[in-house]
Amino acid sequence: MAKITDKIKEYTRPGYYEKFDYHWTMSIDLDRCTGCGACVVACQAENNLPIVGEKRFKERREMKWLRIERYWEGEYPNLKLKFLPMLCQQCDQAPCETPCPVAATYHNQDGLNTQIYNRCIGTRTCAVYCPYEVRYFNWFTYTWDEPLEQQLNPDVTVREKGVMEKCTFCVQRIRMAKDKAKDDNRRRVKDGEVTPACVQSCASEAMQFGDLNDPNSKVSKMTKNKRAYHVLEELNTKPSVVYLQKVEKHD
């Protein structure tokens, strides 16, 4: 027992992940984000997200690892609509990891909050614990109308009924980038070599992705911006997704 508590103490220590090679981080500049939804489709295409149909959507069983939340402020005619792309925050102190009875979700050395599908038994506890509500449960085994299945990405598992799933920061792309780095006899992946599907598609360049351990990476610079904050920061989940506040002051 003592051993487990020691371990927890160790990895909740601030800066624990800095000793590893990477700390994958995403920054989302809300001043650039237009809320257009290109990232949502990019994610669906890349990660084999099912087409659930109107009925399932109505039952709130949509499977969108990345969604855009909208919040209104003010009253007509002085209204504002703010957009917030919400995806798995890959928390360093993830509330979803501790309750899993089979350790199907855990934090790896790259700072990723991983979800191992074949290990998951579908208790859905993690989804209850997640304050960002970004975990999605497969209530059914979804199928694709022939020949739409020809589009499925062979680098990503097609999930089955009874499995929890969520944003992986496109771990398959990280894997490919590492593979390429090894081919080129490089120790590390260069900044900009990994771009998750959503970041790649973003037309206003609101999203950046990279390694926080590299002080010169684009994303490191973004996190040092004065506008940088975490959503629901007071929960102390230490997310790996950094948001940059929308600028509201103008002359």
Partner: peptide, 11 residues
Amino acid sequence: ENGRDCVTCHK
């Protein structure tokens, strides 16, 4: 390296 990390082999 990272040989025991799940996502090294599980996609």
